[in-house]
Design a protein around this nucleic acid. Structure first.
Length: 305
DNA sequence: ATCGGTACCTGCACGC
DNA sequence: TGCGTGCAGGTACCGA
């Protein structure tokens, strides 16, 4: 699942390969397979102003990629000229199984390849594939504010600001960390790993944290993300970087998908519960801080592995 | 403000 | 072997 560290890894792979390159052409293989107006493609290409996918191709043909940035879990390709005197960008969200890779062929590598961009560099194509099609491609104007609804980046926010945000929210920590309007970039893996490092119970209420606990969460979250980026992200099922290589942070997970295995810190067995409709992994002994006195009905215990 | 539930979507593990 | 079922979780949306 591409979360902040995976998207950051992909951006770092692709940046030197595509920056300054011109998009010579774009192909939509699912268009060939499903026909014009296919609902499949319309869902992937989130762009209500385009009446036909062909308009999307027309809009990015011939433009250059000025720079590539990560914004939360989104990849942002800034385009120039943007058209209509605007500053435009191609925004890519990889959903759960999305892959964005640099390839040496224009031929789709998988049956789930949805977009292929040919660049003005011999033997260099950008492929977008997504098995489960939760990912989205979107052309936006800089003024659109599509990305401005997201919260601050966890690696950029100061502790003072983070503590202020926490105090203002009553929600459970796990729910909050998954909320992209609160912080942008964390998903299920790194929310669980961050809470473990911070030794905080996932059902603890944000506003009830004391300063020391807030500080542990702040640093636990940032350390987790930095280590994950250094390891090239976590490859659980589908994730690969811009070169098609798997990451290896999954080998360093301390709680995520380790249900029933001993805690690396105390040896207690890792438990799995459900919070915010998401499987949540934690150590019942290390992560007592802030745990609810009465177990909330939304965190009913599930089967142990 | 915050929650649960549902929809979207495919591959895989599982039990029978 | 083959079939049905549950699970995985990103965002969007609805209703409470």
């Amino acid at each position: 699942m591409p979360e902040l560290p995976e998207v950051e890894t992909i951006v770092r792979c692709l940046r030197p390969l595509v920056t300054g390159r011109r998009i010579l052409d774009a192909e939509l293989p699912s268009l060939r397979a499903n026909g014009i107006g296919s609902p499949v493609l319309r869902r992937i290409l989130r762009e209500p102003e385009w009446s036909e996918p062909g308009d999307f191709i027309e809009a990015i043909r011939g433009v250059s990629i000025a720079r590539v940035q990560r914004h939360g879990k989104h990849l942002v390709f800034h385009l120039s000229p943007g058209g209509r005197g605007q500053s435009r960008a191609l925004v890519v969200h990889l959903g759960m199984t999305g892959r964005l890779t640099c390839e040496s062929s224009a031929e789709p590598r998988t049956p789930h390849t949805h977009l292929i961009l040919s660049l003005n560099e011999p033997g260099r194509w950008l492929h977008y594939a997504d098995i489960r099609r939760f990912g989205r491609l979107q052309l936006v104007d800089a003024s659109d504010g599509v990305l401005s609804a997201l919260g601050p980046d966890p690696l950029e926010i100061s502790f003072a600001s983070f503590a202020r945000l926490l105090r203002a929210r009553k929600a459970m920590l796990k729910s909050l960390l998954l909320d992209q309007r609160f912080l942008r970039g964390l998903g299920n893996i790194y929310a669980d790993e961050s809470l473990f490092r911070a030794r905080l119970h996932p059902a603890a209420l944000a506003a009830r944290l004391n300063r020391e606990q807030a500080r542990r969460l702040y640093h636990g979250m940032r350390e987790t993300l930095r280590l994950a980026i250094a390891a090239g992200g976590s490859s659980i099922s589908d994730y690969v970087d811009g070169f098609g290589n798997a990451g290896y942070f999954q080998h360093e997970h301390q709680v995520y998908r380790r249900t029933g295995q001993p805690c690396v810190r105390c040896g207690s067995l890792i438990r799995k519960i459900v919070i915010a409709s998401r499987s949540t992994h934690f150590c019942p002994r290390c992560q007592r801080a802030g745990r609810p006195v009465v177990r909330p009905n939304c965190s009913s215990p599930r089967k142990q592995a």
